[in-house]
Measured scan of single mutants.
Amino acid sequence: RHRTTFTSLQLEELEKVFQKTHYPDVYVREQLALRTELTEARVQVWFQNRRAKWRK
């Protein structure tokens, strides 16, 4: 699998949602996936990684 490189616009969208909730439900993730043109799975993994980073 290749590494997904996020654009600054995608990161902006993702971070905006992360500020509101660290655990977006499937509906929120789907909406975010559509807005960022990423798959829902990529969005889910981004949140997992972002939460790990936040905990440190």
Score class of each variant (00 low, 15 high):
R1I: 12
R3Q: 15
R3E: 11
R3C: 14
T4Y: 14
T5E: 14
T5V: 11
F6G: 03
F6D: 04
F6Y: 13
T7Q: 03
T7F: 03
L9K: 14
E13R: 01
E13H: 04
E13T: 05
L14R: 00
L14Y: 00
L14N: 00
E15C: 03
E15T: 02
E15Y: 01
E15P: 01
E15S: 02
E15F: 00
K16C: 07
K16V: 04
K16R: 12
V17H: 03
V17W: 04
F18A: 03
Q19K: 08
Q19E: 11
K20M: 07
K20R: 10
K20C: 07
T21G: 06
T21N: 07
H22P: 13
Y23Q: 03
Y23S: 07
P24Q: 03
P24T: 02
D25K: 03
D25N: 09
V26R: 12
Y27M: 13
Y27A: 15
Y27N: 14
V28F: 05
R29N: 05
R29E: 04
E30T: 09
E30L: 07
Q31F: 07
L32Y: 04
L34D: 09
L34W: 06
L34G: 11
L34I: 12
L34V: 13
T36F: 11
E37I: 03
E37N: 13
E37A: 13
L38A: 09
T39F: 00
T39N: 06
T39Y: 02
E40A: 10
E40Y: 04
E40M: 10
A41E: 11
A41P: 11
A41Y: 05
R42Y: 09
R42D: 15
V43G: 00
V43H: 00
V43E: 01
V43D: 00
V43K: 02
V45K: 11
V45Q: 12
W46Q: 00
W46Y: 02
W46R: 02
W46E: 00
F47N: 00
Q48A: 11
N49Y: 08
N49D: 13
N49T: 10
R50D: 04
R50E: 10
R51H: 01
R51P: 02
R51E: 03
A52S: 10
K53E: 15
K53L: 12
W54M: 15
W54C: 11
W54D: 12
K56C: 15
K56R: 11
